[in-house]
């Protein structure tokens, strides 16, 4: 009986979660989730924009495009870091590495944003993008002209997002690789496998679930990042990007950067609430799927190594 008395306190997180969802639902008035809302239309209407001028389709494409590209890069790099520090490095440098990556998890996203905007952008515009165009121009997305507004665009956003999520994915992947039973690793080595062969044939298959969940949680983080993306993605041009150098927009960064307008236009306000709801659902689904895979979790990944 006493156990149930404490339950409301234990359910504080659930209550807050419920409150967030309920308030957003009420604010949206549950209207306008029709076909036009999910459409891909985008045109600039003088005066009050509403769902008929912008469909969320464009924003979702921009969101998934930037998040998945940065995730591909981040997965490759953080898997390399994780394997290196768990398998190849001696214990002390390995621990040091994980401490440094965890430290970097704390650098605020606005700081990544201003660095991307002021420091990286000129480098991208003058050096990286022209050389990418020369070398990989034949690949879809890598050819085509630079954008009119300057070097701020999809590629810069992808790069900044990649650097931002690497600490999280590395911490989660390290934990997944470390949780492979030592017995199995030693059994692999005892049959005369090299370290790499044990990684390839024992550690990666056994840690598969944990690795997937690291990838998904990184994806959730990239999807939801608003400030840094808003700063480097090139203003608020609402368009599907013709190539990687062009500007585009994401749901989160759009919501964040449109505050001023929302104060003036009630219709835009409702649209942004609906965008928030969609973003919430997407992020929650990604997180729930990630949680199904393992016990390692987001809230404690870079401090306690996650998990219970």
């Amino acid at each position: 009986m006493g156990a149930w008395l404490g339950s409301p306190v234990a359910l504080i997180p659930l209550l807050i979660l419920g409150a967030v969802v309920a308030v957003l639902l009420i604010a949206s008035g549950l209207k306008d989730f029709g076909l036009t809302f999910w459409g891909f239309q985008y045109r600039f209407v003088p005066g009050e924009p509403d769902a008929s001028s912008w469909g969320i389709g464009v924003f979702l494409v921009g969101t998934f495009l930037t998040a998945s590209l940065s995730l591909v890069l981040a997965t490759a790099l953080s898997l390399a870091l994780a394997i290196s520090s768990v398998v190849y490095l001696p214990p002390l440098p390995g621990r040091l590495l994980s401490m440094v990556t965890n430290l970097l998890a704390g650098i605020p996203s606005v700081v990544y944003g201003i660095w991307g905007f002021v420091v990286l952008a000129p480098y991208f515009g003058l050096t990286l993008e022209p050389s990418l165009r020369d070398v990989l121009g034949w690949l879809p997305g890598f050819g085509g002209p630079a954008s009119d507004i300057g070097p701020w665009g999809t590629l810069l956003a992808v790069f900044v997002l990649t650097i931002m999520i690497i600490p999280l994915t590395t911490a989660l992947m390290r934990e997944a690789l470390r949780s492979v039973p030592r017995d199995l690793v030693e059994a692999g080595l005892a049959v005369g496998a090299t370290r790499w062969e044990v990684v390839r044939r024992v550690r990666l298959p056994v840690a598969r679930n944990g690795l997937w969940s690291a990838v998904l949680l990184g994806f959730g983080r990239a999807l939801g990042e608003s400030v840094a993306v808003a700063m480097v993605i090139g203003g608020t041009s609402i368009a599907l990007p013709p190539n990687l150098y062009a500007s585009t927009t994401t749901v989160a960064s759009f919501i964040f950067s449109q505050l001023d307008s929302a104060l003036i236009y009630p219709n835009l306000f409702v649209l942004l609430v609906e965008f928030s709801l969609v973003l919430l659902v997407v992020a929650v689904v990604v997180n729930l799927v990630a949680q199904r895979f393992t016990r390692v979790e987001l809230a404690t990944a870079t401090t306690l190594g996650g998990g219970e």
Partner: peptide, 24 residues
């Protein structure tokens, strides 16, 4: 070669477990 305290089978098939070293 070495055999451990607890059985350390890999989460693959019976055949692939025995074939592990040879595949390498």
């Amino acid at each position: 070669g070495m055999v451990f305290q607890r059985p350390t089978v890999f989460p693959t098939s019976v055949f692939e477990n025995v074939a592990f070293g040879l595949r390498l």
